[in-house]
Amino acid sequence: MSTEIVEMHLKLLFDLDNLLNDMDEPTYKKIGFKVEEQEKQSLIKTRTDLLKKLPRETADIYERLRKRYQRAIAPVDNGFCFGCFQRLPTQLLARSEKIITCPNCGRILYWRKK
């Protein structure tokens, strides 16, 4: 599987996990957006299927980080990891084709397209 496809699956998985997290927020429920349990279960199944499409090692890293931090991926901004807010070593700053983790917190790093 190409790095681009793994990255696309990871980003979608991450966005779906954020959706699931927000749905459990009391503020979200208070706003009035109702989500039935059955639909929620269907979203959980979608994210599980997506996880299975990832290489085993990547899926394991993602799940381990999600359990630890809730959000497994951190955007990079101005050379900082936006998960732990530590400056990243210069050699990491040039966007690489590989999936890179933060040397400090371990989160998967994501460089936004400018």
Binding site: D15, V35, E39
Partner: peptide, 15 residues
Amino acid sequence: LILSTLLKREELGST
């Protein structure tokens, strides 16, 4: 990517 997530959200119940 944004569209995929938005449409998944709509599948859960219309906004």
